[in-house]
Design a protein around this nucleic acid. Structure first.
Length: 139
DNA sequence: GCCAACGTTGGC
DNA sequence: GCCAACGTTGGC
């Protein structure tokens, strides 16, 4: 069981769009970055992830679950690009902002802080627990 | 809206 | 295989 973080700009695809898909979930398509794709290839059904809103909001807003492992990205014919499917699990009681994360010493090594441009990234179990606590939701 | 950081592309 | 040019992302 591994933990991940998915980043999206809410005007393109936000938490509300994700929850609207229900348990059927939706492809996390459009990723055109090898590092991000490689992480998606490592994901297993049942792994959990944070859903992060970039740009204006800059906050982790909810938890998602991987519901299909890596498969070809339907938005391109280019066989290099793959994606997983994810479904919304539950929202945070309180969104955890980037400022909150930066204010927490134990989260200083998060990729979110160190490499703000990577859109799909791994999260350690420790980081997972801390952020769930900050968001006042069950891990 | 700007700019820094980063990744990708293409010419050599 | 290197590197300059370019495009994109995302924080500020």
């Amino acid at each position: 069981m591994a933990f991940w973080l998915f980043k999206s700009e809410p005007s393109t695809w936000g938490w509300d769009d994700q929850t609207a898909k229900g348990d059927a979930g939706e492809e996390w398509d459009g990723v055109r970055n090898y590092q991000a794709r490689n992480f998606m290839r490592e994901m297993k059904v049942g792994d959990l992830g944070f859903f992060y809103h970039s740009q204006k909001e800059k906050a982790v807003v909810g938890i998602v679950e991987i519901c299909a492992e890596a498969h070809p990205d339907s938005t391109t014919d280019d066989a290099r690009w793959e994606c997983v499917d994810i479904k919304a699990v539950r929202p945070f009681t309180r969104p955890v902002t980037l400022d909150d994360i930066k204010a927490e010493d134990r989260l200083a090594d998060m990729i979110l802080v160190k490499n703000s441009r990577l859109s799909v990234q791994p999260v350690t179990e420790t980081e997972w627990q801390i952020i769930c606590a900050l968001g006042k939701t069950d891990p």
